[in-house]
């Protein structure tokens, strides 16, 4: 059966539909932010707020540390492709093995992250307090000074900000720490870098193939073309975690003099 509507009737239906659509759109525009806001607090716990507050800065810090040989502000470095790359092992003399400048690289990186992000962690903690305070919670932050614990772990970097927070609305929730985790294999790369540095300081040479055969996600490159002053830049990449760590070494530079 085929229904034939009159032309005027069709126009009326379309006008009514258009008005309805506009009303619905206005209602969504007006109410959605509130809906979203209230539902956010319902699903997000303070940790989630803390994580979202911290994660960008954590990512940036890890990238910078990786590109600059483990330091945020390298003191003794080689410039390479617009980056200041810290020497982890260096000798001024030719025909001599380098002296190690970062004996505990993992610990150094941990300290660098802590030093950089502790103020941010404090700020994020205060943000969380503010959000819940505005949302009608009875918020009791700890009066103690918070402490940022940084852990380099295989495949991840974990930050834990140790400071208690008590939230009370209908019931009371107590949080002792807030954590952020970044998927990053700085841990493995820093350890491999330390091993390379030991090789360079003892033997003066290093064969990347053996390490790449052992760690299948690892790529080891060197500066190309090489510096003519005997400095080597090592670029380690973890392909699985898309993490890069690069550092500079000057060791066993054979000079061109004779005699």
């Amino acid at each position: 059966m085929v229904i034939h509507l009159k032309k005027r009737g069709q126009v009326t239906i379309f006008i009514i539909l258009a008005i309805l659509l506009i009303i619905i759109a206005l209602a969504i525009f007006y109410f959605l932010p509130k809906l979203k806001s209230s539902s956010d607090l319902g699903t997000k716990n303070p940790n989630t707020y803390f994580q979202s507050c911290m994660e960008n800065e954590l990512e940036d810090t890890l990238v910078t540390i990786g590109l600059q040989g483990g330091s945020l502000e390298p003191e003794f470095y080689k410039e390479y492709q617009d980056e200041k790359i810290e020497f982890l092992c260096y000798t001024e003399d030719n025909n001599k093995a380098c002296d190690i400048l970062r004996p505990f690289l993992e610990e150094h990186i941990t300290n660098e992250i802590k030093k950089e992000l502790e103020p941010k962690a404090k700020e994020c903690y205060n943000q969380v307090v503010g959000i819940y305070d505005k949302s009608g919670y009875n918020v009791i932050p700890s009066s103690q000074e918070g402490e940022l614990i940084v852990e380099l772990l295989p495949g991840k970097v974990k930050l834990s900000y140790l400071k208690e927070l008590t939230l009370t609305k209908k019931d009371t929730q107590k949080y002792s720490s807030f954590s952020v985790i970044a998927n990053n294999n700085l841990y493995e790369l820093a350890n491999i870098a330390s091993n390379i540095v030991v090789w360079k300081s003892i033997i003066g040479n290093f064969d990347p193939t053996s390490y790449m055969a052992l760690y299948h996600d690892l790529k080891i490159e060197t500066d190309n073309p090489k510096f003519t002053d005997g400095v080597d830049i090592y670029i380690l990449t973890d392909k699985k975690y898309d993490t890069t760590f690069q550092f500079a070494v000057r060791s066993w530079v054979l000079d061109l003099t004779y005699g």
Partner: peptide, 27 residues
Amino acid sequence: SLGTCVNVNSGTCSPNTEMTVCEKEGG
């Protein structure tokens, strides 16, 4: 002087390290 730098907490050891560098790094 060059020697070995030992981190007694972590057990990490680093060869060919100058005394001053080692002590600065807490080893």
